[in-house]
């Protein structure tokens, strides 16, 4: 997703004053040529706005809401649901929690809290989409964005989702508009307005049975991904075996 270069330059002169473009780029860690190219094409990416915004210590979501079509981003911030929070915990951490609880039940001690790995995890986008609406959300998102469903699937399989689609999905599912941007790694949980330690406390508050069925779903999804990649590998290996 992009915004008009004209709007970006207005915003930049407002927040950065007379700072040169070169200095802005250096501080934001973006290549000067990248920004120059975006300005020439007339469209600036949201990632650029986020990077500049971070370098100036401005809240990213508030900076984004300055632009047309994103005005409701700040007012659209909503605390993530428990399902969303759990979706952002990696498979390994979920399983570790189950094991720790199991050990705790056997020894009679309190479970050792799992040190959660940073968001996003390897299948964070798929997990988040499954968490906010398990039915026909994807079809609606694809239709809304006028894109082929298989292109959306390809993004999800690669654990990617454009900022526009992440915001759209959240809007359709009626959850906090910035939550999908956390799942894609575009925003940190804090930038999106998530309370510190929200994932950990959601995990602690989840019943064993719910955790077990969630882990089962995750393992099922994982096995599909693994089978696919094993099939691909076997096919490539077969070609090499006979024609290599």
């Amino acid at each position: 997703m992009t915004v008009a270069a004209k709007n970006f330059q207005m915003w930049l002169s407002h927040v950065a004053g007379s700072t040169s473009q070169a200095a802005v780029c250096r501080a934001a860690g973006i290549k000067r040529s990248t920004l120059a190219q975006q300005l020439v094409r007339g469209r600036v990416s949201l990632a650029t706005i986020a990077a500049v915004s971070r370098s100036l210590d401005l809240p990213v979501v508030a900076s984004l809401s300055v632009f047309p079509d994103l005005e409701d981003l700040v007012s659209g911030i909503k605390a993530p649901t428990t399902a969303e929070l759990l979706s952002q915990i990696s498979d390994a951490d979920l399983l570790q929690e189950i094991l720790n609880r199991n050990v705790a039940a056997e020894t009679g001690n309190d479970p050792i809290p799992v040190e959660l790995s940073p968001i996003p995890h390897r299948s964070s986008v798929r997990a988040w989409l499954d968490a906010i609406d398990p039915t026909d959300l994807r079809q609606k998102v694809a239709r809304n964005a006028a894109m082929a469903p298989q292109n959306l699937s390809a993004q999800i399989s690669a654990n990617r989702l454009s900022a526009e689609l992440a915001i759209d999905s959240a809007r359709i599912a009626g959850v906090g508009l910035t939550n999908g941007l956390v799942a894609t790694g575009f925003l940190s949980p804090a930038e999106a307005g998530w309370a510190a330690g929200a994932c950990a406390s959601a995990l602690r508050g989840t019943a064993n049975s719910v955790l077990a069925s969630l882990a089962a779903e995750r393992l099922e999804a994982l096995s599909r991904v693994l089978r696919r990649s094993e099939d691909d590998t076997a096919a490539a290996r077969n070609v090499w075996e006979y024609l290599g």
Binding site: A236, V239, W240, E241, G244
Partner: peptide, 20 residues
């Protein structure tokens, strides 16, 4: 086509594919 297969075969380790 066959040369491409050989190139792909030669790169298999780089690509992290199976050790054939």
């Amino acid at each position: 086509g066959l040369v491409l297969v050989w190139i792909s075969f030669g790169r298999r380790r780089v690509r992290g594919g199976p050790r054939a």
